[in-house]
Write a protein that binds this DNA or RNA. Structure first.
Length: 617
DNA sequence: GTAGGGTTAG
C-alpha cells in the first residue's frame, strides 16, 4: 500500500493523468485514513463534512468544539466550511490554530483569500502562497485561477510560466480569465495550444465566448471539436452552454438546431451510459428556458411534459415561465406538485404573486418559506413598492435588516422608489415615533436624494447627525447621490472622506459609483477615471454607467469609449451603451466610427430597445 | 478537507 502511494505521489508531482490519479488517491486516502485514524475520530470527521455540505455550519462547529481529539483533517474540514461561506476571518483564525498544517490547510486558506474580491485579500493570499513550505499542483492552480478570476492576467500568466508542471486545470483557469477581460483572441489561442484538453477546457471557452456575445465563434469551435470524435460524451455541457447562450439572445431556432443535434435518448441503457453523447437534464432545461425567454410557454411545456427525468431546475424553469406570462394558477399548481421545492422555487412564486398584485398571497408564501435569502426579501419588497403599499415596503425593509440580511442595490432601488410619493412618505416619517431608527432615516434621506431634493436630503442628514444617530453605509449612498444630483462636487468629496475618517465606514462599490457620478456630472472626467483606477473593486455597471453619463453630457468621446466598451463587456445584450456611443460619434460627425458601433451591435445581435433613439438623446 | 466548466428566482 505504501509503495503504491509513493508511485502515485510521483505521478502527481509530474502531473500525469490528473483525474485517474485523483480518484485513485481519494479512495486510497480514505482506506489509509480509515486504517490509521481511530474509528470514532474518523466518523466524527465524516459527520463534520456532511454537516457542512448540507449547510449546517453551526452544528458542525458545535461538534468540532466538543471533540477532545482532532487531526488535521478535522481542522481542514471545519476550515472549509468557513471558506465556503466566505467567512475569511474565522477561516484564518482556525488556520492559525492548527497544530500541524498540511498542504491542504495551506491550499484552503489561500483559496479563501483569492475568492474574496478586493486586492487586499489577493495580496494576503499571495503572501501565504510565497510562505508555504511545500506546494503541490493544487496550490499553483488555486493562485493562478485566483488571479485570473480577479482579472489580473499579468500575474496569472507569470505564475503559469513559473510553475513546474503547467497543467490543464491552470490553462482552463487562464481561459476563463482572458474571457472575463473580453480577450477572446488570447483565450482561443490558448485553447488551441493545450496539449491534452479535457471537457472543462471546452466548457470554459464556450461559456466565456457566450458571455462575450461571440456565438458564431463558439458554434464553429464546438463543431470543430465534435468532428471525428466518437467519445462525444464530454461535449454535452458545451452544447448546453451554447443553447443557453442562444436563448439569452432570443435565438430559439439556432438553439433548437443544436438541441436536435444531440441524440434524443432518455433513461437507462445499463452500461457506461454516462459517456455517451446524449441529452441530459441540463440540455432539456436549457432548451426549455429558451422558449420561456421568448414567452413561448406552450413549447416549453411540451418539452417539460416529454422529460423523463426532471430535476428541481426543470420545475423552477417551468414555474418561472408561467410566472412571466402571469399564469399564476398553473405556476402554483406546479409548485404544489413538485417533489422538493427549494429557495428558488419559493422565490419565483413569491415574486409572481407580488408582481401580479396579490400581495396577500405573496406575503403568505414569504412567511411560510423555510430558508429566506436576499432575493426573497427583494421580491416581496419590490411587490409592495410596485403595488404602492409604501408603508408595507418600509416595514419589510426594516424587518429585513433586523433579521441581519444586508440590502443590495435591488433592495435600495425599490425602497428609493417607495419614497415616490415623497409627500406621503414625509407624513409617514413624521408620524413614526417609536419605530424611527437609522433604517427609516435612511429610507427618507434616500427618498429625497432619489427625487433630486438634494438640500432636503442633506438637511435631514445633518439633523440625523445632530441627534447622534449613527449613519450606516446606506445613509452615505443616499447622501452621495444627493450631492451628485445637486452638482455639489466639494461637498461630495467631503462626505466621502468623512464617511471613512469620522465614521470608520469602508467605502463599498456603491459609494465609489456615486463619487464617480459626482465628478463625471461636473465634467471632471479624468478625476472620475482616477477614482475608478484607484478602487480595490472591479468596476461594475453602475460605475461605468456613471462615467458614461458624464461623458455624454460633456461630449467626451475618449472616456465614453472606455466606459461603453466596459459596459458592453459586462452586459453585451443591453443596447444602451451602443446607442449612446453611436449618438456621440454622430454628433461629432464621426460617421465611420458611428457606423462601426452600429455594425458591432448588429453582430452581437442586440436589438435596439424602444425608448432609445438613434438620432436624439 | 483544497484548483478549472453547463440550466433556474429579485
Amino acid at each position: 500500500m505504501a509503495a503504491l502511494y509513493g508511485v502515485l505521489r510521483k505521478l502527481k508531482s509530474r502531473n500525469i493523468l490528473q483525474f485517474p490519479y485523483i480518484s485513485c488517491c481519494r479512495s486510497l486516502a480514505s482506506v489509509t485514513t480509515a486504517h490509521k485514524t481511530p474509528p470514532l475520530l474518523y466518523h466524527a470527521n465524516k459527520k463534520i463534512s456532511h454537516l457542512i455540505r448540507t449547510g449546517r455550519l453551526s452544528e458542525a462547529r458545535a461538534l468540532f468544539d466538543s471533540m477532545n481529539q482532532r487531526n488535521t483533517v478535522t481542522w481542514n474540514s471545519m476550515m472549509s466550511g468557513y471558506v465556503h461561506r466566505r467567512e475569511i476571518a474565522k477561516a484564518r483564525q482556525l488556520f492559525d490554530q492548527i497544530p500541524q498544517r498540511d498542504i491542504v490547510s495551506w491550499n484552503l486558506i489561500i483559496s479563501a483569500y483569492f475568492s474574496c474580491r478586493g486586492s487586499r485579500y489577493v495580496e494576503e493570499g499571495r503572501k501565504l502562497f510565497d510562505e508555504m513550505p511545500e506546494r503541490d499542483c493544487v496550490s499553483w492552480n488555486t493562485v493562478i485561477s485566483g488571479y485570473a478570476k480577479n482579472g489580473r492576467m499579468k500575474e496569472a500568466l507569470k505564475l503559469f510560466d513559473a510553475m513546474p508542471d503547467p497543467n490543464v486545470v491552470s490553462s482552463n483557469a487562464l481561459i476563463t480569465g482572458f474571457l472575463l477581460n473580453g480577450d477572446v483572441d488570447s483565450a482561443v489561442q490558448l485553447f488551441r495550444r493545450i496539449p491534452v484538453r479535457d471537457s472543462a477546457s471546452l466548457n470554459a471557452l464556450m461559456s466565456g465566448l457566450v458571455r462575450n456575445g461571440e456565438l458564431d465563434v463558439a458554434a464553429r469551435i464546438l463543431h470543430e471539436c465534435g468532428e471525428g470524435n466518437d467519445g462525444k460524451g464530454d461535449l454535452v455541457a458545451a452544447y448546453n452552454t451554447l443553447i443557453a447562450g442562444y436563448g439569452q439572445k432570443g435565438m430559439v431556432e439556432e438553439a433548437r438546431c443544436l438541441f436536435d443535434e444531440i441524440p434524443d435518448y432518455q433513461g437507462e441503457d445499463g452500461n457506461k451510459s454516462e459517456r455517451r453523447f446524449r441529452r441530459n437534464v441540463v440540455s432539456w432545461n436549457s432548451m426549455m428556458m429558451c422558449y420561456v425567454k421568448t414567452g413561448d410557454i406552450v413549447s416549453a411545456r411540451e418539452l417539460f411534459d416529454r422529460m423523463i427525468e426532471r430535476d428541481t431546475c426543470s420545475w423552477n424553469t417551468m414555474i418561472s415561465g408561467y410566472v412571466q406570462v402571469s399564469e399564476m394558477k398553473e405556476a402554483s399548481k406546479l409548485f404544489m406538485e413538485m417533489p422538493s421545492p427549494d429557495t428558488l422555487s419559493w422565490n419565483s412564486i413569491i415574486s409572481g404573486y407580488a408582481q401580479n398584485g396579490d400581495l396577500g398571497l405573496a406575503k403568505d408564501f414569504f412567511l411560510r418559506m423555510p430558508n429566506k435569502n436576499l432575493i426573497s426579501w427583494n421580491s416581496v419588497i419590490a411587490g409592495y413598492e410596485k403595488n404602492e403599499n409604501y408603508n408595507g415596503a418600509i416595514e419589510l425593509f426594516s424587518q429585513m435588516q433586523l433579521e441581519g440580511e444586508r440590502p443590495d442595490r435591488h433592495t435600495l432601488s425599490s425602497i428609493l422608489s417607495v419614497c415616490g410619493a415623497i409627500a406621503d412618505a414625509c407624513i409617514v416619517f413624521n408620524e413614526m415615533k417609536l419605530y424611527k431608527d437609522v433604517i427609516t432615516w435612511n429610507a427618507m434621506i434616500g427618498g429625497y436624494a432619489f427625487h433630486g431634493l438634494a438640500s432636503e436630503a442633506l438637511e435631514l442628514f445633518k439633523l440625523m447627525q445632530r441627534l447622534k444617530i449613527h449613519p450606516t453605509y446606506i445613509t452615505f449612498i443616499s447622501v452621495l447621490n444627493a450631492c451628485a444630483h445637486a452638482g455639489l462636487v466639494e461637498e461630495g468629496r467631503r462626505q466621502f472622506n468623512s464617511m471613512i475618517k469620522d465614521y470608520g465606514i469602508e467605502p463599498q462599490i456603491e459609494h465609489f459609483a456615486s463619487l464617480v457620478d459626482i465628478l463625471a456630472r461636473q465634467g471632471q472626467l479624468q478625476e472620475a477615471m482616477d477614482v475608478i483606477n484607484s478602487m480595490l473593486f472591479k468596476p461594475d455597471k453602475a460605475v461605468w454607467g456613471a462615467l458614461l453619463g458624464g461623458c455624454r453630457v460633456h461630449n467626451n468621446v475618449e472616456f465614453a469609449k472606455v466606459a461603453a466598451e466596459a459596459l458592453i463587456r459586462l452586459e453585451p445584450e443591453s443596447s444602451a451603451p451602443y446607442v449612446l456611443l453611436y449618438n456621440m460619434y454622430a454628433n461629432l460627425g464621426q460617421w465611420d466610427d458611428a457606423e462601426r458601433v452600429r455594425v458591432l451591435m448588429e453582430k452581437n445581435n442586440v436589438k435596439k430597445q424602444t425608448g432609445y433613439s438613434w438620432v436624439d438623446s
